[in-house]
Design a protein around this nucleic acid. Structure first.
Lengths: 245, 245
DNA sequence: CGGTCACTTGATCGTCTTCAATACCAGTGG
DNA sequence: CCACTGGTATTGAAGACGATCAAGTGACCG
C-alpha cells in the first residue's frame, strides 16, 4: 500500500512510457473507443492522479475544469445541503467516467472510499480529442444514457419505495455488480458503510440496520459479517424490490 | 383544436413540403445541430405524430424502437410499481428529446398532458444520421449531461428534503422555466395537477395541498387559482428550497 | 486493558400518509 | 336560475413508518 500518499498526487508518467496502453481500466471505460495506434494522443492529455481513502477529490460547486476517469479503487458521489444532509447519488468503480456536467461547476462531490487512481483530462483538451474520435463521443453518450436510466430507477426508489423495498433493491444491485466474496455465488461484500448506504437510499443508519436485521429474520439474507452478506432468497428479494410484498 | 384525434396519428407530410425547415421546435432542440442544407435528410427519417391529452405514447418495458422529439405540447415521464405507485421523473416540453436509453426497452412511460406533437425516429435511421452529423451527437451528449445533473438534484430532493423544501424547490423551478401568466413576472400557471406534483415530489396529493396552503399562510406564495400561482417572496422560497429554514 | 469507532437495539417522537368528509368548479339539463 | 353531477382540491382526524435520541454491543488496536 506504499505509494498512496496523504494528498492527491500526480504520478510521474515514467519518462516515455505510455500509461494508457497498459491501463487495466481501458477495456472497461470509454477509452476503449480509441485504438492502439492513437493511444499516445489520449495519454498526452491524461494526467494520472491518486487520492487516498476518504479524500474528496471533486467538490460540488467548484469550477469544473476537468473530467475524470477512474482506473483503480472506488468512490462515492454525493450532494450536500447546507445543514449537512447528504444524498449519495452513486458509487463508482473502475472505468467510470466523471464530470459530464456541461455547466461550469461540478454538480456533485466525489470522495474516495478506497484509494483511488484516476485520469484527469482538462475539458478543453478532451473536447479536442472528442472532435477527432467521434467513436469516443458515441461511447460517452451511451454511458450517459445508461446513467440516466439508473437515475430514473433511483428516483422511483427514493420517491415511492418503502425502507424494506429500498434495501432489497440495493442488495440485489450490489449482488449483481459487486464482486463475489468467498465460496457462495450469492455471497458478497458491501464496500460501503451503513452510513453510506443510508445516504444512498434516503434513510438513516438506524433504519438501514434495523431493516437488514429484519430481512435476516425473514430468511431473505444472511449477515456473514458487518460487511459481508449472502442472499438466501433471491426471488423473494426481487419480489420485495419490485414492490410486490 | 380540430386535428387532435382520439389516437396517435401520423400526419401527412403534405407532399414535398419539408416539415423540419419550418419547425418551431428546431431552435430549441438537438435538431439545430443540422444545417439548413442537410435538413431534408433529417426530415426524411422523422415521422411527425400527434397524441391527445392523456394518451400514453411511450410505455415502460415495451420494445424501444424509436426516439422522440417533442415539437408541441407537453408530457410527463413516469415509472410505475406493480401496485400502482407512480414516480414522475420529469415534465417535458417543446424541444425535448426522449428515448435515449441504450437498452432495448423503454425505461419509462410518457403521457401527454396537453395535446402533443412529436417527431419519431427509428433507432437505426437516427443512428445513421448521427454518424454523418457529429455535431448532433455532441448536442445529444450535452442534453444528456444536463438531464443527469437535474436527475441528481432530484435525488437530493427525494432522498433528503422535507415536504416544504420539495414544494419550494419545485415552485422555483416552475417559476423559472414555466411561462408567465398575467401581469406579474412572478405569476405563472402550473400545467399539471396536484396528483402529478405529488408523484413528481414523492408525496401525496394531500401533503402537496396542505403544504401549499401553509406556504400561502406564511406569505411566501399566493394561490391565484387552482392552477395559477404567484411567488411573493422568492428569496424566502430559495432559502427554504436550499434547506436553510 | 481502556479506547475508539461502527453497528445494533430500544423507546419515543414527528412528519407524512391514510382514510374520510367537505368545498369548489365547470358543465348539463331541469 | 338553480339543482345535479363528476372531477379535483382542500381540510380534518387518526395512524404508521421512519427519524431521533439514547443506550448497549462488538471488533479492532495501541
Amino acid at each position: 500500500m506504499a505509494g498512496w500518499l496523504a494528498h492527491s498526487v500526480v504520478l510521474d508518467p515514467q519518462g516515455g512510457s505510455d500509461p494508457c496502453s497498459t491501463c487495466v481500466a481501458r477495456p472497461l471505460s470509454v477509452c476503449n473507443a480509441i485504438g492502439d495506434a492513437d493511444l499516445a494522443r489520449l495519454a498526452a492529455v491524461a494526467v494520472v492522479t491518486e487520492a487516498p481513502a476518504g479524500r474528496t477529490f471533486i467538490r460540488e460547486g467548484e469550477s469544473a475544469d476537468c473530467f475524470f476517469n477512474v482506473t483503480a479503487g472506488s468512490a462515492k458521489l454525493f450532494k450536500l445541503l447546507p445543514d449537512g444532509r447528504r444524498q449519495i447519488t452513486g458509487f463508482v468503480g473502475i472505468g467510470h467516467f466523471l464530470g459530464l456536467a456541461v455547466s461550469d461547476v461540478y454538480a456533485f462531490s466525489a470522495e474516495a472510499m478506497e484509494p483511488v487512481r484516476y485520469c484527469r483530462f482538462s475539458r478543453a483538451r478532451l473536447r479536442g480529442l472528442l472532435d477527432d474520435f467521434p467513436l469516443m463521443e458515441k461511447r460517452l453518450l451511451e454511458v450517459a444514457a445508461n446513467e440516466l436510466v439508473a437515475a430514473q430507477e433511483q428516483m422511483l426508489l427514493l420517491g415511492r419505495k418503502t425502507a424494506r423495498e429500498r434495501l432489497a433493491s440495493f442488495l440485489l444491485l450490489q449482488s449483481s455488480q459487486g464482486l463475489p466474496c468467498g465460496t457462495s455465488r450469492d455471497r458478497f461484500t458491501l464496500p460501503m458503510s451503513r452510513g453510506d448506504i443510508a445516504d444512498y437510499l434516503g434513510l438513516t443508519i438506524e433504519t438501514v440496520s434495523r431493516t437488514l436485521t429484519r430481512l435476516r429474520g425473514e430468511g431473505l439474507i444472511e449477515l456473514v459479517s458487518q460487511s459481508a452478506l449472502a442472499v438466501l432468497d433471491p426471488r423473494g428479494l426481487e419480489r420485495l424490490a419490485g414492490g410486490l410484498s
